[in-house]
Each structure stands twice: as C-alpha cells, then as structure tokens.
Nucleic acid binder design. Sequence first.
DNA 1: CGGAATAAGCTTTTT
DNA 2: GCTTATTCCG
Length: 680
Amino acid sequence: MNAALADPFAALNDAQRAAVEHRGAPLLVIAGAGTGKTMTLAARVARLVLDGADPNRILLLTFSRRAAQEMQRRCGALLHAALGLHATQGAPLLPWAGTFHAVGARLLREYAASIGLAPQFTLLDRADAEDLMGWVRQELELGSGERRFPLKGTCLAIYSRVVNAQAGVDDVVATTFPWVRGHEAELKRLFAAYVDAKQRQQVLDYDDLLLYWQQTMSEPALAQAIGARFDHVLVDEYQDTNRLQAAILRALQPDGRGLTVVGDDAQAIYSFRAAEVRNILDFPAQFAPAARTLALTHNYRSTQPILDASNAVIARAAERFTKDLHSGRAGAKPRLVTVADEAAQARFVADDVLLQRENGLRLRQQAVLFRTGHHGAALELELTRRGIPFVKYGGLRFLEAAHVKDLLSVLRWAQNPRGRLAAFRVATLIPGLGPASARRLLDAIETAADPLAALRGFKPSAAAAAGWRDWLAAHAALADAPWPGAITLARRWYEPQLERLHEDAAIRRGDLAQLERIAATFTSRERFLAELTLDPPEATSDESDAPHRDEDYLILSTMHSAKGQEWASVHVLNAVDGCMPADVATGHGDEIEEERRLLYVAMTRARHQLTLLVPQKFHLTQQAKYGDRHLYGALTRFIPEDIAQRHFERMAPAAALGAEAANTTPLPAIDLMARVRRAF
DNA sequence: CGGAATAAGCTTTTT
DNA sequence: GCTTATTCCG
C-alpha cells in the first residue's frame, strides 16, 4: 500500500475503532445523530474485507434506498483508498448491499423454484396493491353494507400492519384502527381473498417481499442454504426494523455470529410502518453470550449550540436510552423565527437561503425540512417565482400520478396479458369502453388458453369499436418493438386519451417525457418494469427535467426522507403545534413521542445553522367546512418556553410579520376560534 | 352499458 | 382539495 495515502482508519475515535475492530459475538452499535454512524459501518465493512472477508459474502441491509446508495458509496471509497487503487480503477462493489425489500426480491427470484413461486413474479407498488384490494373488496361485495366498510386504502394499511407486526387482525384493529371495529370477520375474509388473488396473478406486494423471505427462512434446509451464503450481516437503522425483519435476521444468523446492527432509539420514526423500537432494545439479550453494545456519542456534525437545543428537546422524551450528544464546536444558537403566515414563511426562507448563498454557502449545502409533503407547497411556489432551483424529496410520488400509472400499465399489459390490474386500467382508458366491458374482456382472457387470441377476438360494444381498433394496432406494434422505443409507441397511443381525460394535459405530458427519459436508462422493458417499483426516481422538481448533478439547487425534503442526511444550514418549516406534532398524530402518548423524535431528527441534520420557523397563523386543514380554520402562534409543545429562552435566539423580522404586526410587541397566543366555539 | 353529475369521505411519514 | 362511491341520464 502506498504509505503516502492517508490511512482511512486513522481518523476513527476510540468508540468507532472498537466498533470497526470488534470480532466474534454479535455487535450492537448505538450511534447518535451525526456520530459517524455511516462512516463507522463502512469502515467496519472495509476492515473486514481487508482482513480477508469476501465482499460477495457480506450482506449489508439498510432501511431506505438512499441509505443503501450512501453506504455503497462510502464502503467503495474507503476500500478504494485502503487498497491504494489508482484513480482510474473503479471502487470495489458490495453485491449484497441494499434495502430489506430489494434483497428480499432478489433472493426470492433466486429461490422461487424451491418455494413454488413463479420466478417471473411482478411487484405491486402501493397504489397497485390498493387497486387489487379494491377489486377484491368489490368482488366480495363488502362495500355495500349498512355500516360503511373501510376504503381500500385503509384495508391495505390494516393488512400491511398485520403482516409487518406479525399480529392478528383483531389485535391490529383494536390497537391501531379502532374506528373499523366490528368489521374484523369481513376483513379476514377480504385478506384471504387478497392473498389468493395475488398468488393467482403471480404478483407480490411490498410486504410479501419480507413475508415470503421470512417464510422461506422458516424452512430449516432453506434457512441453512441462505444463511450459509453470508459470513457477515450488517444492518443499518436497526431501530426502524419491524418484527418481520427481526425474524428474518434471527433466521439468517441464529447464533448472531457475524451479525452487526447499528441504530439510535432517539431517531425511531417509523412506528407507522410497524417498526419496533424493542428490536434494538432487546437485541443484546437475544443471544448467549449477549451481544456487545457500543455507544457513539461524539457528534462530528453540529455545533454545540445546535446540539444543546436538540438535546433539550429529546431530554423531555418520556423514555430514552441514548445519551446526550456533544461536539464542543462553537457556533451561533439556533434561531426561532416568528413570521406572519405561511406566505411570509416562504418569503423569509427564500430570502434567507439567498443571503446565505451570497455568503458563500451553495444551495446544495442548505435544506428546508417539513412534516408533510404538501407543507413545502407554498415554498415551492415562491422558489419557482424567483427562479431558485430546488429538488424535493419525499411526499407525493411521481409514480403514483394517474397518468404515469396509465402509461406504465400500457407497458405492463403488453408484457403480461393476464395481469388484471394493468389490463383493467388500460381497457377503461379506451373511449366507449367502461368497467362492465372491461370485466368481460378480462374474464375472456383469463379463461382462454391463448390470452392474445382472446384479446384479438374480443367484440367491444359499438361505441368502443373505433377506440378498440386503435388499441389493437398499438398493442401489436408494442409487442415486438425494441426498448426503449416501445415506451414511445405506448405514449403515442396514450396521448389522445390524456388530452381527452385531463384538463392539464400539458403539465402531465412533461411527466411522461421524464418517464421516457428514465426508461431509456434501463436495458430492457422487463428490467424497467421490475426495478421501477423498488427503485423509483426519488426526487421531483418543478422543472420537467431534473437538475443535473453538477448544478446547484436547494434541497426540500420531508423530515422522514431527511434521515441520515446533513446540511450546513437547515430551515424547519411550521414548528407549531398542529403540525409538530401533526394534529392527526396526537391520538396517544406514543404517537406524540414519535413526533418529538421526528423534530429531533430534523434539528440534528444541521451542521452550522438551524432555523425553526413559527408562522403565527397556520392553517390546520384545507377544509373550508368550518370556515377558515387556523391557529394563532402556538409554538410546538416540544419547545416549551424555558427551552426557547435558553437555547434559541428569537427573531421576528418586521418584513415577515406584515405591516400592522411589525411595530407591536409579540401578541399573546390564543385560539380565538376555539373560544368563540366554546361560547355556544 | 357508458359516462357525467352529485354526494360523501378523509387527509402523514416509506419500501 | 382530492379521490371514491352512488345516482341519474342518454
């Protein structure tokens, strides 16, 4: 090795070094925010490889796709440096690094023959799964009872929780969905039919990737075969794993040898996905001898004032295991900025972001975080108006837009003529052809020996005849078109339907063009359709083509999507009660605690500067039903007055408050609307 | 039967 | 405000 190269392991502190060099017993690393968790895990992998481990036999599981990519990159860079490779040589890759779901999909395809699964199974994203649930729900005539049966989305949410929490329908309904009590028996019937429908159509939903994997592992011979492929299993963000994932890990490494899990209970924010904080808390005692536990508490990210404020917020948590973070780095206190309303908030943030850019902070070093996807909307408008480029993470998924799903369905139906979901969707797009005819067509295809013959032989109603002929022609051309030319053909057929069905066809055409560009980066239609569900484009932007990598742009992100990231400057929108915690999440103590951790996650993303925005007038809902419902100036309950005084600098810029409020002292926070309502 | 018009929910976060 | 379910009309 070239001695002149900096030793990538020299920078580790004692706790990190212990985590990197530990061998033998299972290992739990409690890694607070910004304590070099990713770097430590990457260094551990690199060390293992340098000590002779085979990269092909290292399984590195992460929770999100973004974390998987980051981990890949860091491991590669470390190994590249440690091996003294030349700049022109590519970094070594870890073939088994990915999300639980992606690794599950890969293993299931490989072992499909052994478990009676069709190896060409396709994946349902959430919207597909909802549609299928809706289909089955209708088939069983569950929608027409006297008491309204839960909607398909709710049904799927219940089903998903049943699977991921490994709990019974009765339990899940009682604890998580109390408002659907009384429907348990029908739900069980529905879920059985849903499972049946998925198996007949050879499709898996997200939950199946974990469930089938876990079921596979419950067969000793298969568990042995799969477990034997990996010498080391490392899991990131372990606090966000659910019972199903914990069961998979136990089956992979029953004695815990070579098992490393890393996480931070103070950052557990995915209980809505049935994540179990107990997984991480109970990890050490699960093994004999018990796992070794190491804690990383030195923060390399943030200044001490930012950490002090963050520590103060999380210190009020009802239950907590992680220690306070410390960095000792000097800096300014975080700011608590009062603004008049959400429009003023957007203006202030845009101004502030530009000001910081003038001071030398590139836009990409800055981020704006918010609780829900649409809370960024006002800011998006303002940024667009001023021509400030941005990329938004989280929130509404590109792939779930109706027109994107339509175009994908055209391709899916061409690929798999028996796939009912895609077929139904496309068939009802044909002018003059409605649900009843579509059902007739689908039944004909299902019962026919040759589905394509059934398709060609279908006799639509007179009203649909012309549209049907067009479709048949497009379908025939599509069948043997090369990739990515096929998607262009599909779009050409779809565009007239788009014009006919949507007023805003022009905007939607931009999305389709983007989809076409994405499609061109895949080598075949099969790969495109299979991988898009697990690895969809993760950011949307106002421009039809996403900014190039080397361009500068501001990051907008939900707090959830921000996990694991860091920026020099962070703005947090709407630090008001009703948003933090979200008014939908104030049901019981656990939910509120999770919201507290979410704010903690958001605050600890900042390196040098942290700004929390407090709009004095904040719209609670978009409903106009009860008039214009909004709340006045209630700072989030997670920052009580004493914390605000000690750890924050308070600001109320005149420009952001509006003329009449500018020269008055801060007004008392009252919910006048509530008072008036109480008067009656 | 198809499709427009009307009524009625429900609303987060991600793989 | 948006999607979904139901009703009504051609």
